[in-house]
Design a protein around this nucleic acid. Structure first.
Length: 323
DNA sequence: TTAGGATTAG
């Protein structure tokens, strides 16, 4: 058998604009993400990614991706991300992945590095892609598509609001078949006292307790229903983005205290309700997306430590990324 | 095939 020497990939892709879509054709295109859901389990055999994209034509087009492998789904982290789709089929003005489908995404920030986040092992990427990404970024910047802040830190969370949280998982515990507790932090201190959740030591994965100082920074996130199976795959230490999390004031259930004690009435708990409305879900952040927490975590730490004797920290230091 | 954005109700 002779060795086949491949020429460098010279495939030329033609990208169409969203106002050039013709029904039942297979196309490749670029867009800016204006809505997205992280992949969720469908009633069939696949995971489903549901998104809406736009481009300079200003049309907004729905795109649905069915794929049984999570890693083949688009790596979208926030509104404004740039997406490149290869081989999607136009179905009455919506897009569906078709045979040979592949996807690459990019951060949407003007001036940032153009780093492809591919969902397949091999993918085409050249100068022309770089140019298109930059062009779309510049255009999107004039459209007020991106949220003013990518996520809200714990220190800025308001009761009864929905928000996206970027955080690190410290430990987790299965509560029951429909609920899992995630204990997370982002290095900032919530302006409200945080709800305590008491669980059996044996059900905890990861450390079952932390220094008092650290406990004050830890948010208890209760995730329900469809999110329980996602939570099962999470490992203590993972950096997460939790979408459409809700801050709920309530009373701590601490043994020996009655729940109607005044000081217990306003503690914040965090609920990730069942369903995928408003993009609700959890995503593990790849290393290149880990937050640059070092600076503000340290600044916050000073505030936290003021007046507290226990500042040892020990092995509890925030694990931060190299970036 | 599946979903088809559009808050749980713990």
């Amino acid at each position: 058998r002779s060795l086949v020497v491949r020429r460098p990939n010279v495939t030329k892709y033609t990208y169409v604009k969203l106002d050039e879509l013709k029904d039942q054709t297979v196309v490749s295109l670029y867009g800016v993400v204006v809505f997205f859901k992280q992949p969720f389990k469908s009633r069939g055999t696949d995971f489903c990614s549901s998104l809406k994209i736009t481009d300079q034509s200003n049309l907004k087009i729905v795109c649905t991706i069915f794929c049984d492998k999570l890693e083949n789904h688009p790596k979208i982290f926030q509104i404004g991300d740039i997406i490149r789709l290869h081989r999607v089929k136009v179905h009455s003005m919506t897009l569906l992945n078709t045979h040979g489908f592949s996807v690459v995404t990019f951060d949407g920030a003007v001036g940032g590095p153009v780093e492809p986040r591919a969902s397949s092992l091999h993918f085409h990427f050249d100068k022309e892609d770089r140019r298109i990404v930059k062009e779309l970024r510049s255009w999107a910047a004039t459209q007020t598509l991106r949220p003013p802040l990518p996520t809200i830190p714990l220190s800025a969370v308001q009761p009864r609001t929905y928000f996206d949280l970027t955080c690190q998982l410290l430990s987790k515990a299965v509560i029951d078949s429909t609920c899992t507790l995630l204990r997370v932090w982002d290095g900032t201190r919530c302006s409200r006292p945080l709800l305590r959740v008491i669980v059996e030591r044996s059900s905890v994965e990861g450390p079952s307790s932390f220094s008092r100082q650290k406990e004050n920074l830890i948010a208890n996130v209760l995730v329900y229903d469809n999110h329980v199976m996602v939570a099962r795959e999470l490992k203590p230490g993972d950096f997460l983005r939790i979408y459409n999390l809700r801050a709920i004031p309530g009373a701590s259930k601490v043994p020996g205290l009655t729940s109607n004690q005044l000081e217990d009435q306003d503690h914040l708990a965090f609920h990730l309700h069942g369903g995928t409305a408003y993009g609700r879900g959890i995503r593990v952040l790849a290393p290149e997306l880990h937050p640059k927490w070092e600076l503000y975590a340290r600044k916050e730490a000073k505030l936290v430590c003021r007046g507290e004797p226990d500042t040892s920290g020990g092995g509890d230091a925030v694990q931060t990324s190299k970036l």
